[in-house]
């Protein structure tokens, strides 16, 4: 009976996955007359290569600091270290990611692929904000909606609606909401502040673009997780609530002693599902910002697609996929370990 299912899973999941791992060790391109060559872990080094370089400030002959117009210390040009410098072979081809100063010396963190590093960072920020916020909000909605009230099904349907609409359509709609000139959000804020609010191009500004996508993503899938919480709530026996009412538990105590412990397994499930989905952030980016402005909304999956298909660099895209797989796998293992049943 399981035969066809196993075959399909093998065909569409396992085989491509093994392919991806294999391709990540080659220099295969999407369409290329040359045969692919085995390149070892080159692709991984190209993506993940990170190094630090600590430089002392430039001093003049008398040993005084050379300062620029603003009065800040100056440092030797990085280019001298990262362009074919035989003393620093490991830094070849790297670029500055960020830097910080300890005392006088300045430490530069260099990366082979600064854009990919930004993509990893953005994705992690996205996950760290979306997972707790979406899970918590969904639980709150589920608790509010898990009541015997007339018309409660209408509310359930309304909250669930964004889930059934395609994410692409939702993203297009939110582009209008976030529009810099006459977007709904700007109009609303102008109305609430009696016209004193200066319109913001939410998706076109480096500081607000990722935040705007986070808010929209939380809103879009919150209904889905609400439904999972609801199903968890239904598994808690009503007599337990009656028993706690007789014992005199307040609303908060009932939640703490009856509801929350009863939702343990649901919570683990939701946390893992949201984390996975959040790591896969792509469609919203593709429709709303395409990684911009200034790479402020680059993400891991968007990078994988852009390289694999946009730049026809199939092996690079595969490598990113394998890296993502490793990240997600280790995070779910850690989550499972942290939330294991303690005996």
């Amino acid at each position: 009976m399981a035969g066809p299912a196993i075959f399909l899973i093998a065909l569409f999941v396992i085989v491509p996955f093994i392919f991806a791992i294999g391709l990540s060790f080659t220099n295969q391109r999407l369409v290329s007359p040359n045969p692919a060559q085995f390149v070892g872990v080159d692709n991984y080094q190209q993506l993940l290569g990170v190094a630090t370089l600590t430089l002392d400030p430039v001093r003049d002959a008398a040993g005084a600091l050379v300062r620029d117009e603003a009065g800040a210390a100056t440092y030797p040009a990085l280019r001298g270290y990262t362009r074919k410098n035989p003393d620093y072979p490991g830094l070849d081809g790297m670029r500055e990611w960020f830097s910080f100063t300890l005392g006088e010396a300045r430490t530069f963190v260099l990366a082979k692929d600064v854009v990919f590093m930004t993509a990893i960072l953005n994705t992690v920020v996205f996950v760290l904000i979306v997972a707790p916020a979406q899970g918590g909000l969904a639980l709150l909605l589920a608790l509010l909606i898990n009541q015997k009230l007339r018309g409660i099904n209408l509310f359930r349907a309304i909250y669930f609606m964004p889930v059934v609409v395609s994410i692409v359509v939702v993203s297009l709609l939110w582009r209008f909401i976030y529009d810099g000139n006459s977007g709904l959000l700007n109009n609303l804020l102008a109305f609430l502040s009696f016209g004193t609010f200066r319109p913001v191009d939410w998706l076109g500004t480096k500081e607000t673009a990722l935040g705007a996508i986070i808010v929209m993503s939380i809103w879009q899938a919150v209904g889905f997780h609400m439904v999972i919480w609801l199903s968890g709530l239904q598994t808690i026996s009503p007599t337990l609530y009656e028993a706690s009412a007789i014992e005199g538990a307040s609303k908060w105590q009932t939640f703490r002693y009856v509801t929350w412990p009863g939702l343990r397994n649901t919570a683990v499930l939701i946390l893992i599902v949201i984390t996975m989905q959040a790591f896969g952030l792509f469609s919203q980016i593709d429709v709303m910002t395409r990684g911009g402005p200034l790479d402020s909304t680059q993400t891991i999956v968007f990078q994988a697609v852009q390289r694999g298909y946009g730049k026809q660099d199939i092996s690079g895209g595969s490598t990113i996929s394998v890296i993502l797989f490793a990240i997600v796998l280790s995070i779910s293992l850690i989550q499972r370990w942290l939330t294991r049943e303690k005996r």
Binding site: S237, L240, A243, I246, E247, G248, Y257
Partner: peptide
């Protein structure tokens, strides 16, 4: 009067004891 203030205690057929405690 709410249940907790009635000076009653109840034992249910399904026990209704808290599984995680």
């Amino acid at each position: 009067v709410p249940p907790k203030d009635r000076r009653i205690a109840m034992v249910f057929q399904s026990y209704a004891i808290f599984p995680h405690m």
